[in-house]
């Protein structure tokens, strides 16, 4: 892993068109500003993982549940 040290207001470039700027540092919180083309998706990792997990848990596994639902 590449490790870089940055101060507030400084940024890094990822490729030619993604820029990540350190906006604020407050104890163990860092606020980042990200400039990237629309085609580059930027997500918090834990949200991404949570969605993945929920998707997997949402596979319909039982016909009984469905029938119960549609009886209503």
């Amino acid at each position: 892993m590449l490790v870089l040290t940055r101060k507030r207001g400084q940024s890094i470039l990822v490729g030619d068109d993604v820029e990540i700027t350190i906006l604020e540092i407050d104890r163990d919180h860092v606020k980042l500003g990200i400039n990237a083309p629309k085609s580059v998706k930027v997500y918090r990792r834990e949200l991404y993982e949570e969605i993945k997990k929920t998707n997997v848990e949402s596979i319909v596994k039982s016909k009984d549940l469905i029938e119960e639902l549609f009886k209503k």
Binding site: L47, I51, T54, N55, E57, S58, L65, I66, E68, L69
Partner: peptide, 18 residues
């Protein structure tokens, strides 16, 4: 939105963030 069925279907949920 994707629905996550629960055995107690009243507790079924929907994923509104994705």
């Amino acid at each position: 939105v994707i629905v996550s069925l629960n055995e107690n279907f009243k507790l079924s949920t929907a994923n509104l963030v994705a």
